[in-house]
């Protein structure tokens, strides 16, 4: 078992301890314990099926919507157990935004996409909504490209723009944490570069956890990297150290491309 103490990088935002996860009778995560630092980018890497996405979805309880899943252990965000008996899923997901692997803009206008979250949480005033929409789109580096056509359908945007729209949508609810599940896997290199720049900027204000199968990407954007293999957390450390001096043989094999 690996426990990584985040030594002075910054304070801990998410503290995960002894997390087990099951799909039916199949165990997908084994005794995961890790600290995720505040206002830094943490990358989760590993071969497909290693549990990194499942782990990510455990952080905002998105696995709850899948029938027959079971979880044990603790996930504390700012010392509050999100799986505790008094936990409120809606409030949790308001604090923890998520960006999906395949961009999923709603088939509504750009404005309605970004305003979806705030509206859901009760903001009706149009002026207030407009401000939120503009601020979020600016934050997601999309404002200049779309400011004149906020009423067109989100489905008309390019793939990269759609993904940035999804990021803007997540930012509009003013989360503290941003989960990203392979946000650039379906994009071309140029759009990917834009997303990576964006992640870099956002990390000043948000705690970001990103799943990626692209190791260069992990190396470029993250401060901390965790390597998953077959449902176990094999190794976690500062990104530089993981990529230059991995402690575990498995990590080294994966990074040097000997399997996967």
């Amino acid at each position: 078992m690996v426990t990584w103490k985040n030594n002075g990088l910054s304070e801990t935002k998410i503290h995960v301890s002894n997390l087990d996860f099951y799909y039916g009778i199949t165990q997908a995560l084994f005794d995961i314990t890790m600290d995720i630092p505040s206002q830094r980018v943490t990358a989760l890497i590993g071969p497909s099926g290693c549990g990194k996405s499942t782990f990510l979805r455990a952080l905002n309880r998105m696995n709850d919507i899948i029938d027959g899943t079971r979880i044990t252990g603790h996930v504390l965000i700012d010392d509050e157990d999100i799986y505790g008996s008094s936990a409120d899923v809606v409030r949790l997901r308001k604090r923890v935004g998520m960006v999906f692997q395949k961009s999923n803009p709603f088939p509504k206008s750009l404005f309605d996409n970004v305003a979806y979250g705030p509206r859901t949480h009760g903001i009706k005033n149009h002026k207030q909504l407009s401000e939120i929409v503009e601020r979020s789109l600016r934050r997601a580096a999309l404002w200049d490209e779309v400011k004149d056509r906020l009423s067109v359908s989100a489905m008309d945007l390019s793939g990269g723009q759609q993904q940035r729209l999804c990021i803007a949508r997540a930012l509009a609810i003013e989360p503290e944490i941003l989960l990203m599940d392979e946000p650039a896997s379906a994009l071309d290199p140029k759009a990917t570069a834009k997303i990576e720049d964006l992640i870099d900027q956002l990390s000043d204000d948000y705690t970001i956890v990103i799943v990626t199968h692209n190791m260069q990407q992990a190396a470029r954007v993250s401060d901390v990297t965790a390597f998953f293999y077959e449902g176990h957390l094999i190794e976690m450390g500062q990104t530089e150290q993981i990529f230059t001096k991995p402690q575990q043989k498995g990590t080294e094999d994966y990074i040097t491309g000997r399997f996967g």
């Binding site: 395949k102 979250g117 859901t120 949508r169």
Partner: peptide, 12 residues
């Protein structure tokens, strides 16, 4: 994915 997108924004 549309359901997930909405749930992830804290919609019930």
């Amino acid at each position: 994915s549309l359901r997930e997108g909405s749930l992830a924004l804290g919609a019930t």
